[in-house]
Amino acid sequence: MKKLFAEFFGTYWLVFGGCGSALFAAGIPNLGIGFAGVALAFGLTVLTMAYAVGHISGGHFNPAVSFGLWAGGRFPAKDLIPYIVAQCIGALAAAGTLFIIWSGKAGNAINNTQAGAFASNGYGAFSPDGYSLASAFIAEFVLTLFFLLVILGATDKFANGRFAGIAIGLALTLIHLISIPITNTSVNPARSLSQAIFTGGEPLSQVWLFWVAPILGAIVAGFLYKTLLQNHDAA
């Protein structure tokens, strides 16, 4: 249960910090943090929670990461469902908290006909810069694949594990710097689901892509790392 609570709190912090920065701080005139600030916020959530609770649960905070670690031989299949449930509950709890805070400002209402509404992900008309379904799928697949390669490499028993959290957090920052204009950046099915549920409409109907592409990318990364990159011969 401690592992599941760690995943709950870690995913809660990721969604609250990352999506919260997009909702509250990104667009304030003259003082807003913009895309770069949101990207850094997501990276910082993972970095801080990796050191706070990563030693308890492994610090997944993301269903795609759990699948990728399973594919890489680092995580047992029997724990996949409990971890994913804990991650989704944590993400939904964070989205609920964000909604309560966000609704406290007069005039705030979710417009689910607008790209990026309530920090949701999307493609086509719901991509921040109008990218197609195919572009969104490729971006989410490739970026999650490389995110898992970083995670698997940084946490390898032959790597310097003290700096793993920094490498992983910076990787997530880079991922957001690349892909916020494409999909508003997911690479995390729980993060996408939580915002889509509160947004509704077309963003909710598009959420399938932000489960399928990241999970496929993560699984491919796991098998690639295990077969091509992992050092099986080192003592």
Rank of each mutant, 00 (worst) to 15 (best):
F5N: 05
E7D: 05
F8G: 08
G10D: 05
T11N: 10
G17E: 03
G27A: 14
I28C: 01
G32P: 05
I33G: 05
G34R: 00
G37N: 10
V38Q: 04
A39T: 07
L40I: 15
A41G: 10
A41E: 08
A41M: 08
G43Q: 07
L44N: 10
L44S: 08
V46Y: 02
L47M: 15
L47R: 03
Y51M: 09
A52P: 05
A52T: 14
H55Y: 02
I56Y: 01
G58Y: 02
H60I: 03
N62I: 13
V65T: 13
V65F: 07
A71M: 13
G72Y: 00
G73C: 07
R74G: 12
R74M: 10
F75M: 12
A77D: 01
K78C: 06
I81S: 02
P82D: 06
Y83H: 08
V85M: 07
A86E: 07
Q87G: 04
Q87I: 08
Q87M: 06
Q87Y: 07
L92Y: 03
A95L: 11
T97I: 12
T97Y: 07
T97M: 13
T97Q: 12
W102R: 01
G107S: 11
N108W: 00
N108G: 02
I110T: 09
N112A: 10
N112R: 01
T113L: 14
A115C: 13
G116L: 06
A117N: 03
A117W: 01
A119F: 00
Y123G: 03
A125E: 10
S127Y: 04
S127R: 01
D129V: 13
G130W: 04
L133G: 04
A134M: 09
I138V: 15
I138F: 15
A139K: 02
L143N: 12
T144K: 01
T144R: 03
T144D: 08
L148D: 07
L152S: 08
L152G: 09
G153P: 03
A154F: 00
T155P: 06
T155S: 11
D156W: 09
R162T: 12
F163V: 15
G165A: 15
G165C: 09
L172I: 15
L172V: 15
L174R: 00
H176T: 11
I180D: 03
S186E: 11
R191N: 06
R191C: 07
L193P: 11
L193G: 06
L193Q: 02
S194L: 09
Q195I: 12
Q195H: 01
A196S: 15
F198H: 13
T199P: 09
T199L: 12
T199H: 04
L204N: 11
S205P: 04
Q206N: 11
W208L: 10
F210L: 09
A213L: 06
A213E: 12
L216T: 11
G217D: 08
G217N: 04
A218P: 08
V220H: 09
V220T: 14
A221K: 02
A221F: 12
F223A: 13
Y225D: 09
T227M: 11
L229N: 04
N231F: 09
H232K: 12
